[in-house]
Write a protein that binds this DNA or RNA. Structure first.
Length: 261
DNA sequence: ATGGCAACACACTGTTGA
């Protein structure tokens, strides 16, 4: 089984790329982020036509997540509130950043972690609190599901090997100590990064800035990840970043990442 | 230090992204 994640930076703009990619790479599950479209305008039919069930949670202009799956998902829900309750979550589900469903006995969670903008600003504080909620959410989810795969755009560079210029970017959102600590605490719930099971060297990235010829220079960041509970991690046979869609005309700034088990 | 590129909306400029 292959489970892929891809921040598409607008599903309507990237529709042809995603359809073509799925036809060439018929993964069981594709998790999408930054769909940037309200649910009634999501282009469902092209995905139904090629055999994917669609589960979507979108909003106007920003954010938005979706899970596409060859077989129907069970127990689908969006946002933190179905697990954590309205009182804990407050207004944090207004931004559509999490959707989940069950395939076989595997809990799939698709996330778009906030960007954070600049260290110390309101959006950065929002990101840190959002990560706290995610941690609480995962504690419950892991308790219920021994087989769990969370994947998406984490907007955090886990280690200095995961970015082309760690020192120059050290003060950027995505690298700060509190963000990395928040991710570490999430991982320590019992999750594992399958990319690092198979690849120990640096130079492998999933996002490249549109500006300054970042992609041809491979000036990238590895911020799109899967995290697997131990039973799944042990079964993982491969985890790769497919850079080919990033080479197309009008690409997303992110590349898809695929785990196989 | 700054800007560069792309997508979107109460659109031709401002905001967001990472």
């Amino acid at each position: 089984m292959k489970i892929a994640t891809w921040n598409v930076n607008s599903i309507r703009t990237r529709l042809e790329h995603v359809i073509n990619w799925l036809q060439a790479n018929p993964v069981e599950v594709l998790c999408l982020q930054e769909t940037k479209v309200i649910d009634k305008d999501f282009p469902l039919q092209p995905f139904l036509d090629i055999g994917y069930n669609c589960y979507i949670s979108g909003q106007k202009s920003y954010n938005g997540v979706a899970i596409l799956s060859r077989s129907p998902l069970g127990q689908v829900s969006a946002g933190f509130a179905p697990i954590l309750g309205d009182e804990t979550v407050g207004s944090f589900d207004e931004q559509k950043r999490l959707i989940t469903g069950l395939i076989d006995d595997i809990r799939i969670i698709c996330v778009y972690v906030p960007n954070g903008s600049e260290v110390g600003c309101d959006k950065y504080e929002y990101k840190l609190y959002w990560l706290k909620l995610l941690q609480q959410y995962l504690e419950v989810a892991l308790d219920k599901s021994p087989n769990l795969c969370i994947c998406g755009d984490f907007n955090i560079v886990p280690g200095d090997l995961d970015i082309y210029a760690p020192k120059a970017s050290a003060n950027s959102a995505g690298l700060s100590v509190p963000e990395r600590l928040a991710l570490k605490e999430i991982i320590e719930l019992g999750l594992n990064d399958p990319f690092r099971k198979f690849t120990s060297e640096g130079g492998h990235y999933s996002w490249w800035d549109y500006r300054a010829a970042s992609f041809p220079r491979n000036n990238g960041w590895r911020i799109d990840h899967h995290y697997l509970s131990l039973p799944l991690y042990e079964k993982a046979t491969n985890c790769t970043i497919d850079v080919s869609p990033r080479k197309l005309v009008k690409p997303s700034d992110h590349a898809p990442v695929i785990v196989e088990f």
